[in-house]
Nucleic acid binder design. Sequence first.
DNA 1: AGAAGTTGATTGACAGTTCAGTCAGTCAAA
DNA 2: TTTGACTGACTGAACTGTCAATCAACTTCT
Lengths: 222, 222
Amino acid sequence: MTEPVSAPPTRAPRTLSRDERRTQLFEATLSTIAECGLSRTTLTEVARRAGLSHGLVLFHFETKDKLLAETLDYISDEYANNWQTALAAAGPAPEQRLAALVDADYNPAVCRPSRLYSWCAYWGESQSRPLYQSRCGANDELYNTTFEAICADMNRVHGYTTDPVRAARLIRITIEGTWLELMTMINPYDQQEAKMTAWTCASYLYPRHFGPDGPLKPAGAT
Amino acid sequence: MTEPVSAPPTRAPRTLSRDERRTQLFEATLSTIAECGLSRTTLTEVARRAGLSHGLVLFHFETKDKLLAETLDYISDEYANNWQTALAAAGPAPEQRLAALVDADYNPAVCRPSRLYSWCAYWGESQSRPLYQSRCGANDELYNTTFEAICADMNRVHGYTTDPVRAARLIRITIEGTWLELMTMINPYDQQEAKMTAWTCASYLYPRHFGPDGPLKPAGAT
DNA sequence: AGAAGTTGATTGACAGTTCAGTCAGTCAAA
DNA sequence: TTTGACTGACTGAACTGTCAATCAACTTCT
């Protein structure tokens, strides 16, 4: 019978809601992996970065292994959402969809140190932890087949004769390659140059639709 | 006055010579990193794989950090020797030198799990340990400038107009990209297909000299 | 040639530290 | 008052690094 007093519309979080706290801990984990490396990532350090006790990390994730596995899920989902959202917002033409995919991979949301170093750290351990490999596998395969379908459409719609599997792979690994170099080079080029490298790759595959600076004649301009 | 008795020509190693033992421990370290991941690489496990005591590892390398840093030097030198040897054995024409570089990167000596996973593990920690980045930096820069010089020669000798820096980068990261995919994909393609992907990239850049299966008209055939 | 001594690789027990995980208890929101 | 988030001390295990003792190869002396 107690009526809601004044304004408890969106229920106020207690100290912090479960999901918010988990997200905060994911971010703390990623920043730790990026700055300390996976081998020096400790629960205490993750907690310190979040301003919390290390007991809380285990309260939310049970074990360190589960924290790391779920953090991988977190960036894996983030990556998938990023390109799928970009694709959904793109025009229907294959060159528009291809451009959207390339652009998405250089979105600062996914193309930033805390993500890149973490990806690399997980890749380096994927051999020893099949969990890591399988969790991302489904996502990756969807990305690859989507990319290949777009390349197949470039042939069908625009008369190119490029092998779609190889073309998709070339653009995909060009992007991954620039990611790696952004991380590992002493004097890396900037993200703009990285992106232009990817466009250059696309321009060799589809010269009537892409140049080193991006898509040519952006759609049917007004 | 004591003459050499029968045949002590190459002095016999004691238990094992310093360099041989170190090399053995490098290999044990690489196999541990590849199979267990850097974060689970312990001195005890490295020693176990070498059939030795963990005290001996520290006898030869003082600290775990030094072992890991010197192991990185080991594969870094191995990589550099591999492509420099291949380049020295190649013909003088730029397309021959380029082909030698690509081939060298798929040499099983450097393109195998113990190396690929280790590279990835070190890259993932390069941010937190500047040592890692700087030790490989000099080697990498030499590789890059050599590759760019070859691409510049392709223009000068054969009249291509490709930007040599971008061309070198594209081929280089295509190779690196296939390396990554060989490691991380659930059902990766084989090394042969990886190599053909690199040749395909070269064929787009230099279509008169490379095809998807490798160099065209290999030198001036007899 | 054989004995004794020297050098340096190698071992394994030990110490000190760090870290993952447990748990009893606190605190804040409802 | 109840529920669930949160803390911090504690434990046991694992790991790095130390060290004294051992052992094998080689040198020197007799």
